[in-house]
């Protein structure tokens, strides 16, 4: 029985070749595809037609909902209901004194939100991915640049995809099993 196909993987030698290939793949109308690079190639999101990241919204929501609001209310509760200590005749809820801790907790939750939000949106962590079956893909974290097109893509055609990717300047093309 033939194994199911994950997709095709094409290797490029430098960011410039990858960039131009990405423009072609984008314009050809592929939907389920990706570029893989050892470092963020700046401007590639335009060549791929990607939208802005949503991570900032996750971070902001975490900072406000899990940071600012509970930190301030928590301090107010501790100082006014939890333990009613009158210190130097200061008010029960001296909001000025609560600013440092409120700020610090907001920053903490914003940072946690940024990291977890990034992982969540990216679908990480994961233990395995079909692309890791490819031996040449080991260089993706070193000095090689890749485009992967998934078999799920409506335009994907297992017969012609290798030829198509080679035509874009790929130095090697591989079909990856799922």
């Amino acid at each position: 029985m033939a194994k199911k196909l994950y997709g095709a993987l094409a290797q490029f030698e430098n960011p410039a070749e990858l960039y131009h290939a990405c423009e072609h793949v984008r314009d050809a109308g592929y939907m389920k595809w990706d570029a893989h690079t050892p470092f963020p190639v700046h401007g590639l999101e335009n060549a791929m037609g990607l939208k802005r990241s949503k991570v900032p919204w996750v971070s902001l929501a975490m900072a406000l909902l899990c940071g600012t609001i509970p930190a301030f209310l928590g301090q107010a509760w501790v100082s006014s209901i939890g333990s009613q200590q009158v210190i130097s005749a200061k008010p029960m809820i001296p909001w000025q004194a609560f600013i440092p801790v409120t700020f610090e907790v907001s920053v903490l939750m914003g940072a946690v939100g940024a990291l977890l939000g990034m992982l969540m949106i990216n679908g990480l962590p994961r233990l395995h991915h079909s692309l890791f079956r490819s031996e040449m893909f080991e260089r993706v974290t070193d000095d090689k640049f890749f485009i992967s097109i998934e078999a799920q893509d409506p335009k994907f055609d297992a017969e012609s995809i290798s030829e198509y990717l080679s035509g874009l300047g790929a130095s090697a093309v591989e079909l990856i099993e799922d």
Binding site: P38, M48, R52, V55, V107, R126, H129
Partner: peptide, 22 residues
């Protein structure tokens, strides 16, 4: 499970910028 995906890098760089800003 990092695989250098550029769709990931976009979010990664946003997260990194936020961490720097915070």
């Amino acid at each position: 499970g990092w695989r250098g995906s550029h769709r990931h890098w976009v979010n990664y760089e946003a997260a990194y910028l936020i961490l720097a800003g915070l």
